[in-house]
């Protein structure tokens, strides 16, 4: 029983990592007032590229690098549509997402069902030997620590720095931001690229570390969970990190419960994150003040500096 609990508590960190990375990226994008629904496509494309490159060259750093490059390339298509051409954000995101999924199948085609060894987890000498805590917290992959560090740094950036506040103003009211002399389009572009970088890292982590192998459809809706997480965490990085961990534990809890001989319909467990997201969204949106405090007001609206 103890082993099962440790498995879920420790495993939730690993499972949460790609969700957290992608969700933090998307949260920053949405904070500037842009909704990029191509997260699933970017993650899938990055995952395919990361696996293909790492498998061929044995160089995981190169794999991650090119995966991020692939994801960013997709996001540039999105940026041109949305920022330069003022195309509808929702439809543009879906379009680029479809493109990403198609490209992932294409790149992954020669690597179907291949596997490789996962790189070893970090185990810092003293910490990892602590009873219980060591097992749960200090035997994770480096990327997992990075993901939680990114969440913390993003919180710090948005809440504590001048650039962070500017970023939020852009999402609150791009016209005011423009009048104050901030380059709205450029800030949104940086945010989109940051988001793509995070989605790329998340996708690469999924195919090289979390499940070191490639099969078409590997991302399996994790991009959509990330989009849900942003809402679940009410656009706040630390809450998103908590949500990612919770969703990760939920995904594993089902398996662990099964292995103990009980059985919950797996569909209920799988639906839970989405149901919880709807509940949270309704709860924070209900109150005009609450939603203003959390959700970026101009989300989904394009901005053209006409004068």
């Amino acid at each position: 029983m103890m082993d099962t609990i440790i498995f879920v508590l420790a495993g939730a960190f690993a499972t949460a990592t790609p969700l957290l990375l992608a969700a933090i990226g998307e949260a920053v994008v949405e904070k500037t007032g842009v909704m990029n629904l191509s997260v699933e496509g970017m993650m899938a494309f990055a995952a395919a590229v990361a696996f293909a490159v790492t498998y061929q060259t044995g160089n995981i750093v190169l794999g991650f690098g090119l995966a991020v490059g692939a994801s960013v390339a997709l996001s540039l298509v999105f940026s041109v549509l949305v920022l330069a051409f003022s195309a509808n954000q929702i439809v543009s995101g879906l379009a680029v997402g479809i493109l990403g999924l198609g490209l992932s199948s294409l790149v992954g085609r020669n690597f179907e069902n291949l596997t490789m060894m996962a790189p070893a987890n970090l185990s810092p000498p003293v910490l990892s030997e602590l009873p219980l805590v060591g097992l749960i917290l200090f035997q994770q992959n480096a990327i997992t620590y990075l993901a939680f560090a990114v969440a913390f740094l993003t919180w710090w950036f948005l809440a504590r720095t001048r650039h962070g506040r500017i970023t939020k103003v852009v999402g609150e009211d791009p016209a005011i931001a423009h009048n104050l002399g901030f380059a709205v389009i450029r800030i949104r572009l940086f945010a989109i690229i940051f988001g793509a970088t995070m989605s790329g890292l998340g996708g690469a982590y999924a195919s090289t570390i979390l499940t070191p192998g490639w099969s078409d459809g590997l991302i399996a809706g994790r991009g959509w969970i990330a989009v849900a997480l942003v809402v679940f965490g009410t656009w706040r990085p630390l809450r998103i990190a908590f949500g990612a961990y919770l969703f990760g534990a939920l995904l594993l809890g089902d398996l662990a419960v099964q292995a103990t001989g009980f059985s919950v319909p797996p569909q209920i467990m799988t639906s839970l994150p989405y149901v919880m997201t709807i509940v949270v969204l309704a709860a924070v949106s209900r109150n005009a003040l609450l939603i203003r405090l959390n959700a970026p007001v101009s989300l989904g609206q394009n901005f053209r500096p006409s004068k």
Partner: peptide, 26 residues
């Protein structure tokens, strides 16, 4: 949810897609 709670229909309909699939599977 949109009219009562002002909840974004984009997010809600997206989530409902995933839930619908699970209902079908169940």
């Amino acid at each position: 949810l949109k009219t009562r709670f002002n909840a974004s229909e984009i997010i809600v309909t997206l989530m409902l897609n995933q839930i619908a699939v699970q209902i079908l599977y169940f």
